[in-house]
């Protein structure tokens, strides 16, 4: 499936996996693909998303709000007046470095599977490349696939930040139109 992916598009998939691992999620969903597109930082998708003011840290926070995470949540604890850094300091001085983090659920190691929706996005990205008669699948096509799929957590996050999907589709299409990345 990935043989027609550009270097950037492959990078996005790798980054999506990293993001899933970072958030202690045992699957790669549309939300991780969206993060991957943004974090990749160089391709047309990253440019368009960056222009819309999307920031990775903010997206991660919003994703965790929707799907939850297994990690400690310093921001939420702060709303209760709990300073996680203080807690960490106290436990580490008693039990050694990393004590608080060693007992949490571990981030997944090895292969992390795609959700059916994320798979669908990748299939749609191929479809988008074919439709535009582009020979390879770039980050822009993945973003188009993400928009076309339109129902995953990624779409919800984009809606939450007030991102207009039709406008986004037009922008990215315009950007990848003349060359194939």
């Amino acid at each position: 499936m990935f043989e027609r992916f550009t270097e950037g598009a492959r990078q996005v998939v790798v980054l999506a996996q990293d993001e899933a691992r970072k958030l202690c999620h045992h699957y790669i969903g549309t939300e991780h693909l969206l993060l991957g597109l943004l974090v990749e930082g160089r391709g047309p998708a990253a440019q368009v998303l960056d222009e819309r003011g999307l920031r990775a840290a903010d997206l991660r926070r919003r994703i965790l709000l929707i799907v939850g995470g297994e990690g400690l949540d310093p921001e939420a604890l702060a709303t209760l007046g709990i300073d996680l850094d203080e807690v960490r300091r106290a436990t580490e001085s008693a039990f050694g470095p990393g004590a608080l983090d060693s007992t949490g659920r571990k981030p997944p190691t090895g292969h992390i599977p795609f959700t059916p929706r994320a798979k669908k996005v990748l299939e749609l990205s191929l479809r988008e490349a074919q439709r535009l008669q582009h020979g390879s699948i770039g980050t822009g096509h993945i973003l188009l696939g993400l928009i076309r799929e339109g129902k995953g957590v990624a779409a919800k996050v984009l809606a939450d930040v007030g991102c207009d999907l039709d406008g986004l589709r037009d922008d990215i299409t315009r950007m990848i139109e003349p060359t194939t990345e």
């Binding site: 709000l65 400690l72 939420a76 604890l77 996680l84 807690v87």
Partner: peptide, 17 residues
Amino acid sequence: LRAVRALRELAERLEKL
């Protein structure tokens, strides 16, 4: 609710320790 969840996670870890 997010705060409750965060607190539970923290409590779980402290309990384990």
